[in-house]
Design a protein around this nucleic acid. Structure first.
Lengths: 361, 361
DNA sequence: TCTCAAATTGTTATCGATACCATAATGCTT
DNA sequence: AAGCATTATGGTATCGATAACAATTTGAGA
């Protein structure tokens, strides 16, 4: 029987090219250095634990002197708490969603929870893969965008037994918690607001694919409302795959106006395409809103700055993130008291700006 | 065999408050179910391991049937490989940086490595905290933005003994790897390009704080080059704390033109402030570039779409991310062969557009 | 002074997967 | 047929922290 099957001390060969002394420092070594047990060191790292102030101080000094950094992967294994929250957004380049991500991060500050962020690129398949990758890290909760998931994704989430928050829309079959709003209703509100200003011939830019459910909902909200108001069939144009870029917004409005030249106002699936559309119009010498009025969705920073400023729907992106995280924290700390499956509706409002200013016409 | 595509589990569901049966399923149970050892199941999950195809298939079927999800926190503890790469960016709302984040994520795909993303809000203190939080997860490598770090941050990174990549600039004292470019030189190039078009009276918008080192470098590149070209002292305006928003760009140009009304061309620290400046000018009835030429930095999507389109410096944001990740992967797999501490220079180029079109004047 | 509860610290057994080594089975060579 | 490399699989000891429980000290009240 071999007494020494393990290499006790890894010889500092050229294992690490980098400078630092890369010996692994453990809690036990810190403990020995201070003259306490590892358990006491562990306790010193958590604020609730009972360690005398004097001992904690000595431990922390040692931690500092030795340069010890807590190892959470070990900790989470034994405590069975990963300290992770997972969040999936369609895109991190879209500032609406990165605002939501920021809201989540901010809400998580000082909770000891860390955000694992992934982007699905508007694909349910990619979402499924990401969900699995995330679950392998055993997150304590997960925040999703939208309510459209593959069956396997649903099964995995169900099995995981962790709180789930779906955001940014109201799913038909919520998994668990929801923090969102009706994209269809929001777009409807915008149509009504513009109709009440006297606009009659409405156009729409934005596709209807399974990839972007929120976009589809906005579109259907548009079509339904135009119909309801008796303003004939809405004139809707699809262009490219979601998310529609600024450039595609420009191309789309050209098509739309070629097909229906007498259109008075065009609503876009997002401010980005609205911006592209407006700029294309200006480039072609058309005046906005005098010749054509254009509105967007999402109230991106660009829309208030742009000249003309862009009429839009303001959505509380950051708040969605904060509230989603808050729901999760609640579910985690609330010891199961809170009834799950509640829907938190977030607000939105029409922001009328120059791009649809009727008085200019 | 059940034929029902049920959406809930077939077991009584009032077991826990949440849907799924949340009993923890371990590899050992999967192994028992299949009739092999846990070790074999573990091997079946890695592609390189030697497991007969037949066994692997049986295992994977069992995994599927039982709904087992690998637990990486346990795995990384014993394998001493976390599977994490950490990356810190100043802001996730800035699309330049989110492009970089996307580049990193894409480069990491299929490597089995996962990205831990954090944003520092342009603060070295926040960066220090984040570095510690990240190191607690024992990332195998870390990507930072910029070269300005606190001493403690440097010490922690050194001690961690993992490859570090600093991006987006060329630090004076690189920690390890660098993937970036000289912001000062890039801005200088833009100044020269515009000077060669005949512009003489140059203005600049963008502060010089320690918070945004890239911004400071651009500013000093501007001032230095204007000086070198014998174009008198540059007229530079600071406004607000970094990152300068679109709105602040608008306010800044007003100040600048009040102070130096004869300015011919204004360079901005980023396209965002340039856009804000242009829109403010248009709002005030000034023509761009006829009355005032304006240029930005970063080649955001907005700049090619905007009317007038915005002259800028194109930086390969996405490529910076990809290359940074590639350097890390290289350092990790390269078995220490590669010499560390190399600097990878990324490209940039002047993109002349309408906003500085001299022929329009 | 003694008792009991609270505060503080220590000991031991995990958490769940994987490294490492051993072993069994298979195939190919001479 | 023996020899040996190769492939497939199992057994055991960790990885590093923490939960759970035990032990010790301290202080207040009887």
């Amino acid at each position: 029987m071999k007494a020494e099957p393990v290499k006790n001390e890894d010889e500092p060969k050229d294992k690490r090219l980098k400078g630092g002394d890369a010996q692994k420092l453990t809690m036990a070594e810190v403990a020995k250095y201070v003259g306490v047990s590892a358990m006491t060191v562990s306790r010193a790292f958590r604020q609730d634990a009972s360690v005398s102030e004097e001992t904690r101080k000595r431990i922390m000094e040692a931690v500092d002197a030795l340069g010890y950094v807590l190892d959470l992967s070990a900790g989470s294994l034994s405590s069975r708490r990963s300290g992770f929250i997972a969040a999936l957004v369609p895109s991190i380049n879209n500032s609406n969603f990165s605002d939501t991500a920021r809201g989540i991060t901010d809400a998580l500050e000082d909770t000891g929870l860390q955000l694992l962020l992934g982007y699905t690129d508007y694909s349910a398949e990619k979402e499924e893969k990401l969900i699995e990758a995330m679950l392998r890290r055993r997150p304590e909760g997960i925040i999703l965008t939208g309510g459209s998931h593959t069956d396997r994704a649903r099964r995995m989430l169900d099995k995981a037994g962790i709180p789930v928050v779906e955001t940014w829309e109201i799913p038909e079959e919520p998994i668990n918690h929801v923090v969102g709003f009706s994209n269809s209703e929001a777009m409807s509100l915008l149509v009504r607001a513009l109709a009440s200003q006297g606009y009659r011939r409405f156009g729409y830019i934005g596709g209807t694919t399974a990839r972007d459910t929120r976009g589809s909902q906005r579109r259907s909200g548009f079509l339904r409302t135009v119909e309801e108001l008796g303003l004939g069939p809405g004139r809707a144009i699809s262009f490219g795959v979601p998310p529609i870029s600024m450039e595609q917004g420009g191309q789309a409005i050209v098509s739309l106006l070629e097909r229906w030249p007498d259109t008075e106002v065009v609503l876009c699936v997002s401010d980005l395409s609205a911006f592209g559309a407006i700029m294309e119009c200006k480039r072609r010498g058309m005046r906005v809103p005098e010749d054509i009025a254009i509105a967007g969705f999402g109230d991106y920073e660009i829309s208030s700055i742009c000249h003309p400023s862009i009429t839009t729907i303001n959505v509380d992106c950051y708040g969605i993130g904060r509230q989603a995280a808050a729901r999760l924290l609640d579910a985690l700390q609330g010891s199961g008291e809170t009834t799950g499956d509640e829907i938190t509706l977030t607000g939105y409002r029409v922001v009328l700006r120059e791009s649809t200013d009727r008085s200019a016409q």
